[in-house]
Write a protein that binds this DNA or RNA. Structure first.
Length: 262
DNA sequence: ATGGTTGTTTAACAA
């Protein structure tokens, strides 16, 4: 089973890039964030035409939005609201083998890394705290896969320059501490770092603002796949599709992250 | 130190 996660930054604008991902990488399940489409506007037919007959989508106008698109049937689908907001950041479903799959979009948190001055950063920190508490309460030994845009690059080599990123939202010590607490709240294994040692740079996002994203290569690893430890023997490989950042004149600023499991 | 780009929806907001 090949599972992909991708912050697509508008599923309607970039449905062609999703079709290319399907054709070239043949994922079985695609988890999307920032779909930016209400459910009635989601391009269901394009997914169905590519064999993704099973969709669990949760969208809203303009912002956020998450979706699970699958070749295999999904059951016990649902969603959860976070920080008391109905802002479409988490959907889940069970796979035929009863593995739970969760697709999450963590708030970006704005530009100023001070919760007193920046309500968006306070929201992000509260969101991460709530994730740790909720997952701790759900540590029940069942097999789970948790993917998404977590908007935090936790390791020093998950950013292009650890020192220059310490005051930049997505790599501040407080965010890293809270993401790590979430990861420890429930038995989770970072499925990509399972394959790649921490000394090695890994990025899944490059800013639109760079003149030449590829040359400057100031990336961050914001997109993650975590699995419960019982699934680690089933992990067969991973892929971060860097080339997708250049697939189109108008790409997403994130690229697909994939693992083969089972 | 600052500004740089993008998508949705149409002037502002979020990323």
């Amino acid at each position: 089973m090949r599972i992909a996660t991708w912050n697509i930054n508008s599923v309607r604008l970039r449905i062609g890039l999703i079709e290319r991902l399907i054709d070239e990488e043949k994922p079985d399940i695609i988890c999307l964030q920032e779909t930016k489409a209400i459910d009635d506007a989601f391009p269901r037919a394009a997914f169905a035409a590519k064999g993704f007959a099973h969709l669990h989508i949760l969208g809203m106008k303009s912002y956020n939005g998450v979706a699970i698109a699958s070749r295999v049937p999904l059951h016990d689908v649902g969603h959860r609201d976070w920080q008391g907001r109905e802002d479409c950041r988490h959907v889940f479903a069970s796979l035929p083998d009863e593995t739970e799959l969760h697709c999450v979009y963590v708030p970006a948190g704005g530009d100023v890394p001070d919760p007193a001055a920046n309500p968006k950063f306070a929201h992000k920190l509260g969101f991460l705290d709530e994730c740790a508490a909720w997952w701790k309460s759900r540590a029940d030994g069942k097999s789970k896969i948790l993917v998404g845009d977590f908007n935090v690059a936790p390791l020093e080599n998950d950013v292009w320059s650890h020192k220059q990123m310490l005051d930049i939202v997505s790599h501040t010590p407080i965010e890293v501490e809270k993401l790590t607490a979430w990861q420890k709240s429930h038995p989770w294994v970072d499925a990509v770092r399972h394959f790649v040692p921490p000394q090695e740079k890994l990025y899944s996002w490059w800013s639109y603002r760079a003149q030449d994203w590829n040359a400057s290569d100031r990336g961050r690893r914001l997109d993650h796949i975590w699995v419960t430890p019982d699934l680690t023997p089933a992990l067969k490989g991973y892929r971060i599709l860097r080339e997708a950042r250049g697939w189109d004149p108008k790409p997403s600023d994130h690229v697909p992250v994939m693992v083969d499991v089972g």
